[in-house]
Amino acid sequence: MSLTSDPPVDPSAGPPTDPSAGPSAPPPADRCAAKGAGAGSETLTIVPARHPWRWAAIAATAVLLAQFLNGLITNPGWEWDVFARFFTAPTILKAVWVTLQLTVYGTVLGFALGIVLAFMRLSESRFLRAVAHGYIWAFRSIPLIVQLLFWFNLAYLYEELTFGIPFGPGFFAFDTMNLVGATSAAVLGLALHQAAYAAEIVRGGVLAVDRGQSEAAAALGIPRLRQLRRIVLPQAMRSILPNAANEIISLFKGTSIVSVMAIGELFYQVQVVYGRNGRVVPLLMVATVWYILLTTVLSVLQHYVERHYAKGAVR
């Protein structure tokens, strides 16, 4: 690369006469056109800048990618036949279904509670704000796995759950081990954890909506709930959605943590199978490909939902 062959063109040298340019230096093309002299052509050809380093990077990346793909296909360690056998095996499909259920319940309950917490944090009552804040602080501080194990062992903490007047006589009593079975303990744990994050996402989305919007709605006498549902939340959705999609996807993959509770979700089931047949790598691939596949479906859904809420936005 030569630094000396071309005279440097100073972009700040705007005026028509450029004292630094020697008599032999050709005038920059734009000035030529401005004068309407010289080339005498109205249509000057544009030559795009060249990017030699970009081509080098592309070549290097392509080589690495080819090597990787080659390894995937030719290395017998991947055992693609085992992969194919187990990918759609009934036990695995059932486990995928459990994973999806955990994700859906965790998301729905988590965001439902999250929305309540978000509006508590936005409320004018200091007490409600403090409670919501405390909840979010606590559940963001506790690692999910620790929390899940707590729920799983709830029976040791409270042997009976009693429904009745607070601090007063009870009407119904449940054996906690029956009430909080392993799966509901998992859903509960995921949802409570998710709610803390969902609350902050929803609150951020609501705060991102111009205050003038709810003010205009209030000035028109639109009822409070309707203001939220029809005016504020649809606009908040625009900034809520990308973050919510991130959360749902990470919850979806996070369900694998539930395997510590011996629940038959995807990751647990895969571990069971390779524990039996010793084919670790192809079975991990089974789980991986399912996770990738379903995350892709979620991303596509995200695209369409975001497009729906982009109504009226002009970029």
Binding site: D210, G212, Q213, E215, A216, A217, A219, L220, I231, P234, Q235, Y309, K311, G312, A313
Partner: peptide
């Protein structure tokens, strides 16, 4: 009430 910045509902 008519606001300086309109405050139409953009969606």
């Amino acid at each position: 009430f008519v606001f300086q910045n309109f405050h139409l509902f953009p969606h």
